[in-house]
Write a protein that binds this DNA or RNA. Structure first.
Length: 800
RNA sequence: GCGGGUGUGGCGGAACUGGCAGACGCGCCAGACUUAGGAUCUGGUGGACUUCCGUGCAGGUUCAAGUCCUGUCACCCGCACCA
């Protein structure tokens, strides 16, 4: 029979649609399963072969769960706000809404052609006002809770996109999207206090089934450190506060360093004798981007503040104060106590400027290098903490500081607040109004959504303001509080906004009273399995956990953590093993593969290509193997009849069901497919199979290659869809063999293999082994030293 | 520097708590059917070659190591002057 995949695939896709086969049921009494893949940004390029890998994987999971009786929610939507669409709109003078519609239509037809079992009745689009109404609503809740605030700050500004970027969007000093250099620019920005949730975002990971690298990366990104804040008196009469993780080394602090942006300098200008030199240094530092300041392993620079000194509170010594850009303004207090004997950076700086290096923890040679080992050191030259180990010394020091009222224990995070403003058109308008009298006032919730106005040009203004700022009619409004003249915020939200809560909307996508009904959220949340790219670990994944935690805190949703399980797929690389990209010319178009081999082959190949979590290069040759397998499966219909089976085949099928089931649950799709291939090979060897058995095989294969499975299932005379059939159950006893081939080793080297009953005794096994000709030969004339029999595994006879 | 990961045939990759290394697929070789085949089917396929050697490298534990331990090298990803 000809495997006519275009006809088969079209036919079953139509039948699934007709039957609404994959729509999640509204029956909340059923056991539920919420499987989620990251919704795509509908770019102009269309689907990439990388997209279907995770989609197919969770499609397999969803299809199997559905067959196992779960009420499955497997939704899809569009994360459609964003720069590429806007840039395309600017260039071609088309409304971004039109561009988005076009791209979405293309993506959707591509996804449909793959036979993915998405519940399209729940399709969402972040640019839809009925959707972003709730994105804005969440922002207002954050605003009302004091978690959204406006701040003048130096931000990352992409010179090409003319847009502010979050720290997470800056890669090695360049814009994540376009690669243009990023500069620092002072702007007034909306910020979200994600730092307030730092602790929760770390602790929340505890009970979650996230792959280790995701947890580690998030923890690393949040960067919790435990230390102390200490106040130093200075000769100005003012005090300087520092943050340190090594308060035990306070006696070794021989100078202080403040960041160039630190307010101390401006506050005490008149006392600083070399103020010109200091100003020059500050100016130089301010010109550099964050990247330039940190990039090179360069020599440390700095300027001493002449005429002022600080006092070490431990020993009363006067110590110099420096300005240096190796101290960051944005972390801790922007000032440090320098302990050159026990900190590499301070050591380097001290060596360059000839500053004293005083050893306070014994164990190293501080003239040679900083001694930073905290596990073995013992305090010296340190007054009341001399002789203590580091950890004890820290505790004692904090006690001392608190007693004196000059310090306390303190936890710091590397995580920064989230820069939430973009000066762009194609994003959710931030629903607040600036009133000269009342300040920033929330747009009333009943006025949401605050829709994007039509504008003449989508281009940001020359000074980097949003194009919305030119819409005077839209900007001018009345203050919701006092009714006076006021102006709307013209910044829009970043692309991350819409994706920070989309999983909630899927639970109840058409609700116009709330972001989702309480019952739907209670039933569906948390997401049972969320798969997505590693590149989103410190962005989307962290942001959405933050929002969900927040919504939990204000009572909108019952669970704090949105995702019970998080996994990540490996990238599909080009044939040459490099990342696929237009410039490298190694891009594969999924449409071509579907056309030339069929969707089932495409799906199967992407799952068979390698370990799901690992990157794998595309190989056009290998696809054929998957197609051959499906053809061979399809042609079994001609062999299948009502005649009796063989016990061997029966067992093989029971084993197969068991293996495929557990392999899907543990993401080992490649070995599940290998097992199915083996099984089909066996059937061709045996030369027969019953219709019932083939129907069972169709069920087992259906999550992977659903179209051909449906076709075979129906050709065999079965009623209904295999996609909605009951997942076959295996008989545990039939997955076990009665006899086992046991390798026999002599001194650890395999000499022969003997067939034994599974439950053979050690004595029987050994006598059987020794009866073997080759074994007998090998042990003849030797002394048996030891005999090992591992039932079902191996026999090893040690001889001398 | 810190954190995470990966090294197995010509290639992608298998190998559960240590127990026949190389499942499955690609490629390759031979044969069959063909006017033909970049289609299909059948058989073979780690390397030397009859006894060994082989899972990045060097040691160790064990009756037995890809798997455990110690050391080491290479590559990939994330963060990076975070005090």
């Amino acid at each position: 029979m000809l495997y006519d995949y275009p006809r088969i695939e079209k036919k079953w896709q139509a039948k699934w649609d007709e039957a609404h086969a994959f729509e999640a049921k509204q029956d909340f009494s059923l056991p539920k399963y919420f499987a989620l893949v990251e919704f795509p940004y509908p770019s102009g390029q269309g689907l990439h072969v990388g997209h279907p890998r995770p989609y197919t994987a969770l499609d397999i999971v969803s299809r199997k769960k559905r067959m196992q009786g779960y009420n499955v929610l497997f939704p899809m939507g569009w994360d459609a706000f964003g720069l590429p669409t806007e840039n395309y709109a600017i260039k071609n003078k088309i409304h971004p809404k039109i561009v988005t519609e076009r791209n979405v239509a293309r993506f959707k037809s591509q996804l449909k052609s793959l036979g993915l079992s998405f519940d399209w009745s729940r399709e969402i689009n972040t640019t839809d006002p009925s959707y972003y109404k709730w994105t804005q609503w969440i922002f207002l809740q954050l605003f009302k809770s004091g978690l959204a605030y406006k701040k003048e700050m130096a931000v990352n500004f992409c010179t090409s996109c003319k847009v502010v970027l979050a720290n997470e969007e800056v890669i090695s000093g360049s814009c994540e999207r376009c690669g243009a250099p990023v500069i620092r620019k002072v702007k007034s920005q909306w910020m979200l206090k994600i730092t307030e949730y730092a602790e929760k975002l770390i602790n929340g990971l505890d009970g979650l089934d996230f792959i280790e690298r995701v947890k580690a990366q998030q923890i690393n990104w949040i960067g919790r450190s435990t230390g102390a804040e200490i106040l130093f008196d200075t000769t100005t009469g003012d005090q300087l506060k520092v943050y340190t993780t090594r308060c035990d080394t306070l006696f070794g602090a021989t100078y202080m360093v403040i960041a160039p942006e630190h307010e101390f300098v401006d506050k005490h200008r008149s006392l600083i004798e070399n103020i010109d030199e200091v100003d020059a240094y500050k100016l130089e530092a301010s010109k550099k981007s964050d990247f330039e300041r940190t990039e090179l392993v360069k020599e440390k620079t700095g300027v001493e503040l002449k005429g002022v000194k600080a006092i070490n509170p431990a020993n009363g010594n006067e110590i110099p104060i420096f300005v240096s850009d190796y101290v960051l303004a944005g972390y801790g207090t922007g000032a440090i106590m320098a302990v050159p004997a026990h900190d590499e950076r301070d050591w380097e700086f001290a060596k360059k400027f000839g500053l004293p290096i005083v050893e306070v923890v014994a164990g190293g040679n501080v003239e040679e290098a900083a001694f930073t080992d905290v596990a073995t050191g013992v305090l010296v030259n340190s007054g009341f903490i001399t002789g203590l180990e580091v950890e004890d010394a820290k505790a004692k020091m904090i006690e001392f500081l608190e007693e004196k009222g000059i310090g306390c224990g303190k936890v710091n995070y590397k995580l920064r607040d989230w820069v939430f403003s973009r000066q762009r058109y194609w994003g959710e308008p931030i629903p607040v109004v600036n009133c000269p009298k009342c300040g920033w006032v929330a747009v009333p919730e009943d006025e949401l959504p605050l829709e994007l106005p039509e504008v003449e040009s989508y281009e940001p203004t020359e000074n980097g303001e949003s194009p919305l700022s030119l819409m005077t009619d839209w900007v001018k409004c009345k203050c919701p509080k006092c009714g006076g003249a006021a102006e709307r915020e013209t910044d829009t939200m970043p692309q991350w906004a819409g994706s920070s809560w989309y999983f909630l909307r899927y639970c109840d996508p058409h609700n116009d009273k709330a972001l989702a009904s309480r019952e739907a959220l209670e039933y569906w949340m948390p997401v049972d399995w969320y798969n997505g790219g590693m590149e989103h670990t410190t962005l989307h994944l962290l942001y959405s956990r933050f929002w969900n935690n927040f919504l939990h805190d204000i009572g909108t949703i019952g669970v704090a953590e949105p995702y019970a399980k998080r996994t990540s797929h490996g990238m599909i690389l080009g044939e040459n093993g490099e990342k696929m990209s237009k410039s490298r010319g190694n891009v594969v178009n999924p449409d071509d593969i579907v056309r030339d081999y069929g969707a089932d082959t495409m799906r199967l190949y992407e799952m068979f290509i390698g370990d799901f979590e690992q990157a794998a290069p595309w190989n056009p040759q290998s696809i054929k193997g998957c197609k051959r397998f499906l053809e061979r499966f399809y042609n079994l219909v001609e062999i299948a009849d009502g005649n009796g089976t063989t016990p061997e085949l029966e067992k093989h099928i029971h084993k197969l069901i068991k293996k495929v089931e557990s392999d899907i649950d543990s993401m080992k799709f490649n070995t599940a497919i290998a097992a199915m291939m083996s099984c089909i090979n066996t059937i061709y060897e045996v030369g027969k199979i019953t219709k019932d058995e083939l129907s069972t095989l169709a069920k087992v294969l259906s999550p992977f290659a659903p179209h051909v499975a449906e076709e075979v299932y129906s050709l065999l005379g079965n009623e209904g869809l295999v996609s909605l059939a009951k997942w076959p159950e295996y008989d545990e006893s039939k997955t076990k063999d009665d006899t086992v081939a046991m390798p026999v080793q002599i001194n650890g080297k395999v000499k022969s293999v003997v067939n034994l009953p599974v439950n053979a005794s050690k004595e029987d096994a050994l006598s059987c082994a020794k009866a073997d000709e080759k074994v007998a030969q090998a042990i003849e004339g030797k002394t048996i030293v030891k005999e090992i029999v591992v039932p079902g595994k191996i026999i090893n006879i040690v001889v001398k």
